[in-house]
Amino acid sequence: MAETGGYLPGALEAEAEKADTRNRWLLSLPAVIIIICFAAGPLLVMVLYSFLTPGDYGNVKWEFSLEGWMNTIVQRDIFDDTLMWADAHISIFWRSFSLSVITTVLTLIFGLPTAWFIATQPPGRRELWLFLVTVPFWSNLLVRTIAIQELIRNEGVINLVLLKLGVIDAPIQMMFTDFAIGFGMTYVYLPLMVLPIYAAVDKLDFRLVEAAHDLYASRWTAFRRVILPLIKPGIIAGSILVFIPSLGAYVTPRVLGGGKNLMFGNLIELQFGAGRNWPLGAALSLMLMTAVMIALIYYVRVTSRDRADG
């Protein structure tokens, strides 16, 4: 053993490395099992259910059927079984999509100046403003939504003030409209837009803005040609963070939109509840998930291209 001098010869070393890898796998096994059971498992159940037949009182019958998937966009006439477009669903898809886009745009319009304002404060005060922006996160979403209801309902603060001032004669109907949903979602998701843009503006080298001015760029041109391209990753991240939960929003449209103005999330809930059509609910959930994944893939591709560029 004298010639090995206390260290392991090559073969032994490789053996030890193999054992090491094996141990590492064993150690992570519980985590892997949990992820498979509680993340992948329910997803597989959803896929399975979407191809079964609805039970009479909810749940599913173990008979293969494509009705669940078909019912997402078409519906069978109850009298003569002819197929037609499920107008109600399609209008809900459209409302979900358009309201999510509007919410994203509105949060961007309000969020960008807010983020800019915070990022240009003296360092000590920035934390306070960031804290204030995140305060709403600390209370329950339902409570916050009901607070909005207090603001915009017919007897709410806004209408009362406007009536008192004589601006309007009768209260403006804001509750249970698409406006109410858009307003509520903009409020709820605004911090998700502010924070990533703040991070991007915070990283922005303001000497570049000075350089742009020095090279004859006006304020607007400097913003468009230099600032905007540099904070674009933050804007995209914020937009995705707002758009994805908007698409599946449930509480806000439920409380502020009432029973009429459904969104995707409410439609899914309906199928598992009063609608008693679990396969349709499962199919709709998977559709929503696909839409979200498309948005995410787009985000990853855009940001990774940016990184390759920059």
Partner: peptide, 20 residues
């Protein structure tokens, strides 16, 4: 006069080249 209206250009210490 604001900087964008002066016939004066600057070479910055940090260079401040536009990274994009």
């Amino acid at each position: 006069l604001p900087p964008n209206q002066r016939p004066v250009n600057t070479v910055f210490q940090s260079y401040a080249l536009f990274p994009h």
